[in-house]
Computed example of a mutant assay.
Amino acid sequence: MAKNALQAQLLKAGLVDTKKAKKLTKQAAHAKRTGNAPDAEIKKSVAEAQAEKLKRDQELNQQRQQALEEKTLRANIVQMINQHQITDTQGDIEYRFVDDSKIKKMNITQKLFDQIVAGHVSIARLEEGYALLPRPLADRINEKLEGFIVESNDKAEDEPAEDDPYAAYVIPDDLMW
C-alpha cells in the first residue's frame, strides 16, 4: 500500500491512516500528471536560470568576438603602416606637430616637409614612434579605425569661418618656429 518508506513509517507509527495515505498518493500522482507538482516549479526555475545563463554566455561571447575583431583590425593596420611607410625620411629640417596635446618633432627632408604641408603625406602612430604615409592610405586607415593618424593636413579644414575676424591674416603652413 505504501509507496515509499516515509508513508510506511507513518502508517506503522499510527500518525496516518490508510485512507489518508491513499488520498495523498492519488494527489501526488494527479499533480505529477498535470504538472502542478512542486518538482515542476523547481524544473521551471532551473530552466529559466539556464536560459538566463545561456543569454549571458552569448553576450560574453559576442563581446569577446568584437574584442578579437578589433585586435585583428589593429594588427592589420599596424602591418599596413609598416609595409607602406615612407622610409627615406632622415633630413635636417624639423617638423613639429601635436600628439595628445604634446608637441612632437621629426627630422625630415625638405621634400617631405613640403608634401606634409601640402597634405600629400600624413603622420601616423606606430608602436612607440611615428611613420610617414601617403595620404590615400592614411584616409583608408582612418576610415577603418580612428586613432592612428596623428596629423593630416587638409586644405578644406583650413578655410576660415565667415565671421572670423582674423580671416584676412593667413598663417603660412611652412612657418618655422
Rank of each mutant, 00 (worst) to 15 (best):
A138F: 07
L137R: 03
D92I: 10
I103H: 02
Q90S: 14
K43D: 11
I77M: 09
G35S: 04
A8H: 02
P136G: 03
K43S: 11
A31Q: 14
K12M: 01
I171N: 11
I171L: 14
L6A: 08
D92H: 10
R56W: 07
V150M: 09
A5Q: 13
E127G: 12
L60S: 07
A21H: 02
K44Y: 05
I108M: 03
K44Q: 13
M176E: 15
A21E: 09
K105P: 03
A21M: 09
L112I: 02
E59W: 01
Q110D: 15
E48M: 06
Q90G: 12
V117R: 05
H84P: 07
I93M: 13
L10A: 01
Q62D: 12
Q83A: 14
I93R: 14
Q27A: 09
L126A: 08
K20S: 11
P38E: 05
A2N: 07
Q58Y: 04
M106F: 04
I116D: 05
N36P: 04
K32E: 10
L73W: 01
L137T: 01
A5G: 05
E69L: 14
L175F: 13
K23T: 12
A2E: 09
D100L: 13
R33G: 00
Y166C: 08
V170L: 04
L15W: 03
L6Q: 06
M1Y: 00
K155W: 06
V78S: 10
P160S: 03
A118N: 05
E48H: 05
L68W: 09
Y169H: 11
D100V: 10
K20Q: 14
I116K: 02
Y169E: 08
K104N: 06
L112C: 00
I77L: 13
A75I: 04
Q50N: 12
I123V: 11
R96A: 05
L73H: 02
V78W: 09
N142C: 08
R33Q: 12
K23A: 15
A118Q: 06
A47C: 10
V46D: 09
L6P: 00
D99T: 02
D163K: 04
D39H: 11
Q58S: 12
N61Q: 15
A31L: 12
L11P: 00
L137Y: 04
Q9G: 05
I93P: 03
F97N: 04
D154G: 12
Q62Y: 06
I171C: 08
Y169Q: 11
A47E: 15
K32T: 08
K20C: 08
Q27K: 05
P172G: 14
D154A: 14
R96K: 10
H30E: 14
V121F: 02
L126H: 11
D88G: 10
A138K: 04
D173K: 07
I141F: 09
T87E: 15
N4G: 07
K32I: 04
A37S: 15
K19E: 14
M1R: 00
K19G: 13
E143F: 10
E127H: 15
A37N: 13
K12W: 00
